[in-house]
Amino acid sequence: MTEPLLSVRDLTVQFPTRRGLLTAVDRLSFDLAPGEVLGLVGESGAGKSMTGSAIIGLLEPPGRIAGGEIRLKGERIDNLPAEAMRRIRGRRIGMIFQDPLTSLNPLIRIGDQLVETIVTHTDRTPWEAKLHAASLLEAVGIPAARARIDSYPHEFSGGMRQRVVIALALAADPELIIADEPTTALDVSVQAQIIAVLKDLCRDKGTAVILITHDMGVIAETADRVAVLYAGRLAEIGPVADVISRPHHPYTRGLMGSIPSLDGGRDRLEQIPGSMPRLSHIPPGCAFNPRCLQAFARCVAERPPAYRADASEAACFLLDPAMSPAEAAR
């Protein structure tokens, strides 16, 4: 395997509160190859957005990286000074947020916002930057891009605005884009357009993407691999087709079963009992054990490491090759 573009090892994000230290991301590890699209899925509070913010160095205080390391092309970026991190942000890692309205400055023409980003992060002259901005807007599918470069954000519809945000994230040709729920605020019919644009552009430019979402549908059609998070920990990671059709972790299985599909009839859905624990009440052992129908004594006693299962890895003792058959039978 080639050297990973991004390597996250034992990443731990904590929040001091007056009721104690909360661990929002707990010893999370994964690699990302150049040009790869990795989906990060999980329910709200699973730590997926927090992981994205930690990578790009935008954790809201008092949250902080309490352990582990993040390497971009082998160089550690989790402990960089703020100024050095600022140079990486935008230049080498681009970011797309959920709400296109808040990620664009409403008082600045979109062309100027693009030019500013391009000039800050590349050695293009303002004139070249403007040409580049227009071609970016064209690339993200904004009709009459040259004419609309001097428009303000409010003159665009929600879908068009998110296209502008994508153009902005791509402006300095970053190696990695972190897209945090890029389609959640959009209508179904527009979602597909945005996903298509993001996917095509990143493939053409060889940009790697971390796609953070709770929508398995978006992951299924976009990602190469997917990491399933539960209570700040990695439950399962693997090729997207495997995780969807042959999930190994009981949580992933339950999650996949509970998604209603268009082909099903008018019938009951599978459901996982209970709900994800709050960060202040994460049970000992495997965080999923109170909801797991297959849990046994060991699940309550110790936290499972990631075991290899086919092309995936899953943190579940059921996959421990050393497990006694008696335990497995239960």
Binding site: S189, Q191, Q193, E221, S245, L262
Partner: peptide
Amino acid sequence: AVPDLRPGGRPRRAIT
């Protein structure tokens, strides 16, 4: 426009 979860399933078409 509804994505299909099944691998190799019907590709979703974008609405214009």
